[in-house]
Simulated assay, not measured.
Amino acid sequence: MNDEAPVKRWTAKRKSAVVIDIFKGKTTPVEVARQHDLTVAEVERWVEEAERSMEN
């Protein structure tokens, strides 16, 4: 069980840290969603946004 307090506000910095961990293979969108009570679609959208930003 996760002992951390739930994140109330996902800042760009927090999102990018999660996305970097996903890119590095340290976690998956499914694991992040489960740990933070998010939908997998939300987390995958963060990953897609990061990929688009890197392309520009």
Rank of each mutant, 00 (worst) to 15 (best):
R45C: 06
K15Y: 07
K8D: 14
D3N: 11
D37G: 15
V40E: 15
E42A: 05
A17E: 15
P6S: 10
V40Y: 11
K13H: 03
V43C: 02
P6Y: 00
E51G: 10
A5Q: 11
I20Y: 05
A41W: 03
R14Y: 13
D3A: 15
K15G: 07
T28W: 03
I20F: 10
V19Q: 13
R52F: 12
P6E: 01
K8S: 12
E55H: 08
K13T: 06
R45F: 07
A41K: 03
V30R: 01
R52I: 11
K8C: 13
V18N: 07
A33V: 00
E48Y: 04
N2Y: 02
E4W: 09
E44H: 02
T39K: 12
R34W: 05
L38N: 10
K8A: 14
F23A: 04
E44Q: 11
V47I: 00
M54Q: 13
K8V: 14
D3G: 14
R45E: 10
T27I: 03
E51P: 00
E48Q: 09
K15C: 04
A17Y: 10
K13G: 02
R9F: 10
G25M: 00
W10N: 06
F23S: 09
V47D: 01
F23K: 00
V18Q: 12
T27Y: 07
H36K: 13
E44P: 02
E49F: 08
A41Y: 08
W10E: 11
A12E: 09
A41L: 08
A12K: 07
V7N: 09
I20E: 13
P6V: 05
V18F: 12
E51Y: 08
I20R: 09
T11S: 15
R45L: 02
Q35Y: 13
I22G: 08
A41Q: 09
V40A: 07
N2A: 08
W46R: 07
T11R: 11
T11Y: 10
E4L: 13
A33E: 05
K26V: 12
D37W: 10
E55N: 10
T39F: 14
T27H: 05
E44R: 04
R14E: 15
V30L: 13
P29R: 01
Q35C: 14
V18D: 02
R14W: 11
E44T: 06
T11F: 14
K8F: 15
E55M: 12
D3L: 15
A50C: 04
M1I: 01
I20P: 06
M1K: 03
V30C: 09
A50K: 02
S16Q: 11
A12Q: 03
S53H: 03
R14V: 10
I20Q: 06
G25V: 02
E42T: 08
E42F: 01
H36Q: 13
P29V: 00
E51Q: 09
E48C: 00
E48K: 02
F23C: 09
A5M: 13
D21S: 01
I20V: 14
V30T: 03
M1D: 04
N2T: 08
D21G: 02
P6T: 06
A50L: 08
V7I: 13
V40R: 08
K26M: 09
H36T: 12
E49P: 04
P29N: 05
E51F: 01
S53A: 00
S16C: 11
